[in-house]
Design a protein around this nucleic acid. Sequence first.
DNA 1: CGAAATTGCTGAACCGGTTAAGTAAGAGGT
DNA 2: ACCTCTTACTTAACCGGTTCAGCAATTTCG
Lengths: 342, 342
Amino acid sequence: MPEKAASKTITIADIAKMANVSKATVSYVINNKKGVSLDVRKKIQRIIKESNYKPNTMARALAGKHTNSVGLIIPDISDMFYANIIRGVEKASGKFGYFLNLFTTHANPEKEHEVFDFFTSSMADGVIVMTYFVGKEVTRKLRQRKIPFVFLDFPYDDDIYSVSVDNFEGGFKATNYLISLGHKKIAFLHGPEAARDSKARYRGYLKALEEHNIPFDKDLVLKGDFLRQSGFKAAKKLIDIKKMPTALFAANDQMALGAMSALKKEGYRVPEDISIIGFDNTEASSFSKPTLTTIMQPIFEMGSLAAKTLISLINGKTPEKKRYLLKTRLIERQSCSYYNSR
Amino acid sequence: MPEKAASKTITIADIAKMANVSKATVSYVINNKKGVSLDVRKKIQRIIKESNYKPNTMARALAGKHTNSVGLIIPDISDMFYANIIRGVEKASGKFGYFLNLFTTHANPEKEHEVFDFFTSSMADGVIVMTYFVGKEVTRKLRQRKIPFVFLDFPYDDDIYSVSVDNFEGGFKATNYLISLGHKKIAFLHGPEAARDSKARYRGYLKALEEHNIPFDKDLVLKGDFLRQSGFKAAKKLIDIKKMPTALFAANDQMALGAMSALKKEGYRVPEDISIIGFDNTEASSFSKPTLTTIMQPIFEMGSLAAKTLISLINGKTPEKKRYLLKTRLIERQSCSYYNSR
DNA sequence: CGAAATTGCTGAACCGGTTAAGTAAGAGGT
DNA sequence: ACCTCTTACTTAACCGGTTCAGCAATTTCG
């Protein structure tokens, strides 16, 4: 333990003494509560300013019951997706005077529990949760401790606040776009089986086909795993089975890019021979050749909406909706063009 | 009688009661201090576990003098650079049982002060600072409050702990690499004037030339601003003045990529006609065509080393070095080749 | 004009822990 | 046996705030 220094930090008692009032009065001034005359109030404020006094956060948190900080639990911070979440949460929290406590679980169940326990023991006034192992247990814990929480990118349950991206709508939008360009033979490339978001995008794809009375062709639905390589393989497969679609919708950019390079390698031109659309609007999507048309997720907004919702909750309000589904946006680039019937 | 149980959160007093001991004894057990018999210790531990008791973080922080969390102040989180810093800090902190409090200043001086005041009023046991407006003032504040701190990517002063990347060595390494490939006419492309890191890289460049007795040619030194566009322009300029180097070292990847596209556009082949090396190893550098050889900064390590150093400081140790300079790493890709004298 | 309500401030309990000082019982030394 | 050390706990003060009950002085009002 560090040697405790002798230079006392200034406390509320010191201020009270200087102003010839009680601690209580100082506290009321600090918190802008009424019951203090203007004279005394001003005097105290002046003394506080002059002595550069800052109330101790821990003591406030202990005595009152709020820390003025929100917690954010995410699996990792290895890519821009999470970075944008953080930014969104941080920005919105800051606007309301809240600070951010960041916790990452490293997709590790043990660590995840640890983190939850930490929150559970007061540390943040509320918590935004984005995790792999969400379970009844976690929500039960949070409920038990009466700490407000919002789930992120996981429309978990009906009676839980959550903010997510509308992947269904995104899939629908992507497919519709291709259809609007005249395409009818549209392939879909799945992410890993377990991926909820990929599935939702697929449902959007089906819905769009259906709405335009385009017959579903199961040969045009391919398996992937969100990795570049799987896009590459899937494209090869399409070529092999000699059922070339005129457009391909990949459940994420990585795979779209993989498919693109495979197709180009085999002599297909993008977008002249085949249009490709991805999902995510990753940085790489704007560097490919041709640049990749894709669906952008409003990640930043997701984070910031989650924070806003949480803070309302903290303040005892009851935001109207329980589940927010954010709309995606189509980013038109070069990889898609009108169907060329030639 | 209604045994009123308002779902109170369980405290150390409750545990003490259950175990028929005093709060103090429970506290000793929680903190693994000696002076408690094995029997009692085990009993208390069992009760703690059974009742799922978690000590209140705020109270501990107030009574003891540590929060078990480290603060990290960074300007923003908009790119992978910062994301990696965060990861590094978070990982290392976690290993020592510390949590991370993240604060971003949005490159806004006002916000920066706010954040510092927050820390100043206890909230983290120590803080890692990475900021635009570092000044005497900030370090004075931190010193005054006796809160340990470490600067990141800013070898600020000799008597302050700091962890940075050795940009000089990186510039030296990049240039040396080109020289080892037989190049003698090597251009350097600067970042913005104010950028310390760019300057350091330049010094490394000069040093490498000097060590190999390669005459310095000021025409081969170009101005840029770290943005892609400036790389593009610089390359054009090189072409115009008809003093084509055989290699180009850009102070960051963005500019390297910009230069690459300009050169390709004008019919130069990379790397056959001109080798290009960048700095940063951004994601984009591995997607270009040809892929970009570059210098990687050990960002993650920087964050993690900063955290380790800080935690030593917190624990009253005095780490040996005050300024850490981390070595960069050369990432060989396709954009550099042997000088072709043909 | 006297009672009631309001205003302005204080004292003290409390939040949930940590820790220094004190005590009683048992162990060790001579 | 006597005195001293340890060991194992307990008591109570404290960390730095918040907040409620209480009280005196002042204002409002029937």
